[in-house]
Design a protein around this nucleic acid. Structure first.
Lengths: 231, 231
DNA sequence: ACCTCCAAAATATGATCAAATATTGGGAAG
DNA sequence: CTTCCCAATATTTGATCATATTTTGGAGGT
């Protein structure tokens, strides 16, 4: 897990002005969203301080934030780990996303500008490219970006936040699934969604995004179901 | 899997075994839920360490958790405060709760036992008493407890968590509203909900809780709308 | 009204203590 | 003589604190 390139302390190159705990948080968040951490993996404070080259207080705070969002799990005895999803968890996520995502895109459909639709299309093109390249991480990032932009367009910060929070929960598993299934036969409902947005057709947009959610989540569930088979 | 029975040895009277940051978190959470903190109020780390007699690290972690849940707000420059709700925020909460609460009580209606319904009725009775006494805090706690039990009965931990999270956001404002309006004319849809649960009538239960949500939230919104009036 | 300086508050570190897990060594049973 | 289990110990990891450093917001002077 050693990747840790730059020590950002010197030289004033990447000075962001953001506090360390915020940076650590964002970094950890990405690691979770895009599958650098695998489901079930233990997350230790001291391990992260070493790996990320930070003090323990910022790491600690980042971990607290993520646990309170369900991205990490308090494993009883003071240990923290990446949650292992059960079928029931996926079911609940499906219910939540099947309601939230269409609701949000309906609102987006009423407000979206041509420029914004173009930007969505750009993201989606990059996403297709990532699929063709077989670049899993780029695919995950692109897909995330696409949906986050949809959420943002809805101008419903609270509901968007709820929807975003769900991605943190299935991020690690999603990586595993796509790793197994490959990125080949990912149907694209994105194009249909973009067209619907361009036409300001809320129903069609909701329909397209509903399919997208259902297919993605269903794929997730199937990959977790088969704990049968062997004795 | 060593469950390691306790020698929780010596030294302590009210030892709970929970880490300080957890205790602080719960305490702060209650302060927010039941209106000990008012909307807009600044929350300082050092203020809390003094007030709660704790070190800063645990306080810090508790604050991070609460901000990531929307119970506190990161006021730009390192300051944290209790959020001031705007009308739009309330609108979103209404949308969210009008979907979540009925969904959850429908599930509860399928699973609730007679004993559990009795317990709900007990909570509701205590709640009525608090209203008659004009005990605002007891009312808020009772109402919270009632709804949390409904959420728990639904056996949908994830969705219940989302619903619970919303209470943290409107807790402080709710206190203000009830302080203004008084606790007198609070219609009770709770009794209707309990009866519907007893009859395993999901539709009626959803209807009752929908009314409850709508009335409560609407009251909230009305109290925040009137920033007009004066010229 | 603007600028300087100061106090208060937040950030971040490392040390220290406590708890939990991993390890290993001895003894009893086969 | 080997194997397995238990207990004592070692090591890893988490929790908390005291402290140093940096930033912010405002007071007071020009």
């Amino acid at each position: 897990m050693q990747q840790q390139a730059a020590n950002w302390d010197d030289a004033g190159a990447g000075e962001t002005g953001l506090p360390a705990h915020e940076l650590i948080y964002r970094r950890l968040r990405e690691m979770i969203l895009f599958g650098d951490l695998t489901p079930g993996q233990a997350v230790t404070i001291q391990g992260l301080t070493a790996e990320l080259g930070a003090g323990m207080t910022p790491v600690r705070e980042a971990i607290r934030r993520l646990t309170s969002q369900g991205a990490l799990e308090f494993q009883g005895n003071r240990r923290v780990s990446v949650p292992l999803l059960k079928a029931g968890d996926i079911d609940e996520m499906i219910v939540a996303r099947e309601w939230l995502d269409p609701y949000l895109i309906r609102r987006a459909a009423l407000a979206v500008s041509a420029d914004q639709a173009d930007h969505l299309a750009e993201i989606d093109t990059a996403l297709d490219l990532a699929i063709r390249r077989g670049d899993l991480r780029a695919y995950l990032k692109g897909n995330y970006e696409f949906h986050m932009m949809l959420y943002a367009l809805a101008a419903s910060p609270l509901l968007a936040e709820l929807a975003e929070g769900l991605w943190l929960r299935f991020g690690p598993s999603m990586r595993v699934v796509c790793g197994l299934m490959g990125t080949q036969n990912l149907p694209d409902n994105h194009k249909a969604a973009i067209e619907a947005l361009r036409a300001a057709d809320a129903d069609a947009a909701a329909e397209a995004i509903g399919r997208d959610v259902r297919q993605g989540m269903e794929q997730l569930r199937l990959s977790l179901e088969p704990p049968v088979a062997a004795s």
